[in-house]
Amino acid sequence: MSQYADPQVLVSTEWAEEHLNDPTVRLVEVDVENDAYDQGHIPGAIAWSWQRELSDQVLRDVIPRDKFEQLLSQTGIARDTTVVLYGDNNNWFAAWAFWQLKIYGHPDVRLLNGGRKKWLLEGRELTHDVPVFAFTEYRAQEPDYSLRAFLPDVQKAVRDKYAALVDVRSPQEFTGEILAPPGLPETAQRGGHIPGARSIPWGKAANEDGSFKSFEELKELYANEGIEGNKPIITYCRIGERSSYSWFVLKYLLGYRNVTNYDGSWTEWGNLVAAPIERGIASPLREAVAHAG
């Protein structure tokens, strides 16, 4: 079995357990709902709230550089700390935090393969103890927005087809049957997808225990939809966290160089006035249905 393109960005649960007392490693749990951490977490792990600490709720943006520096400083992280992120829902927001740490140039950030789910399933140690670390004077780099797609990039991709759009939401969201994942708030006026996007739900990249599928399986998964890394790739979902997960897979596990995460995602495109959308199944399938009919 081939190794992932950049295996350094992924750690196993065994590795994490071996480094629980390693002062150069900081475990950070980032959940969809913060009560998961309170129910029990990996010993030594701290929690970040994606809403309160990793989002600028006024601008609807990633946190600014000074807030990022403050967050890492108060959680005892220095530039040479190995940050290992994990969380619930197969690392949805852990991947989103990973993306932000990469934007601000943290040298060594990794994901725990399988996240909280795998750690619990394997019966590994949990605690209620909340660690406190000495403050640091963290200094971040200027944000690297080459990892991020903004609306004009996506508009250009639709117009010029210079990039492949990968919609990682559920098939029902892609077709427009529903406006948001079942049970989660509806945040768009319309259902459907960005014209030309390929539907490759994030969950297809995960095994039942939450870990990532093998290099070969992932390569085939995306290749079957024409995504082979020979042109830029833009991932999107509803608010940008599931697409961070798939961005991670494409960029670091498969090693495709030019992959960006469109965190504006469907809550931006689906609400845009006069922006074109497609509904129903993906275009080639639609053509096949038409021919069969």
């Binding site: 077709t175 427009g176 049957e177 529903i178 406006l179 948001a180 079942p182 049970g183 989660l184 708030p185 509806e186 259902g191 497609e278 509904r279 129903g280 199944i281 275009s283 639609r286 249905v289």
Partner: peptide
Amino acid sequence: KRLLRTRRTDFDLTVGG
């Protein structure tokens, strides 16, 4: 309670556009 708030749209899914 959360699932009850999830509405399904009623357009024909075999028709694009």
